[in-house]
Amino acid sequence: MEDADFQELFRRHGDRLYNFAFRLSGNDQDAADLVQEAFTRAFKNLDRYDRARPFETWMFRILYNIHLDEVRRYEKKHVVSLDAPVTAEETGQWADLLAGGDPDPMEESLRRENDVRVQKALNTLSADYRAAVMMCDVEEMSYEEIARVMDCPVGTVRSRIHQGRTLLRDAFKEKEGVRTK
């Protein structure tokens, strides 16, 4: 691949990759580091890129693996409880999070606020569930593509997506005092 091609692909997919990195890491600083590291590694290993496969899937895979390495390194040093409850301030009401058709002038402000709540709920998921749900529901990737990124069978992707959605739903519902299944 010529460098000019890479530059074009970078311009085309950079934002999408950044959004994924942001949702995985949960903040701008870590997202920027992730994206920079992913592009640097990709650039050094351009000769290993299989042109028959989508560039984007390759980049997502690199970024996801970097993130997993960082998570594992972090978890070695810290004990992280995935069962720790998310505070009410963090998640708000489940009903508030659902998109409505009301053209309220405060809609944009609420959307931003809800966005933060979504991110905080996402942060309660393990890296595998979060990545699977993000790739499916936000990046609209197929199960097959997600399986390639996560290097696992499609059946595992299916389970992770469902489990991730269930945990997210429970995290939101919990704040309303609704008993979840």
Binding site: D15, Y18, N19, F22, R23, D28, A31, L97, L98, A99, R111, R112, N114, D115, V118, Q119, V133, M134, D137, V138, E140, L168
Partner: peptide
């Protein structure tokens, strides 16, 4: 809800 979340650039 996830699909509607704000996209970062």
């Amino acid at each position: 809800l996830l699909a509607a979340a704000q996209r970062r650039t």
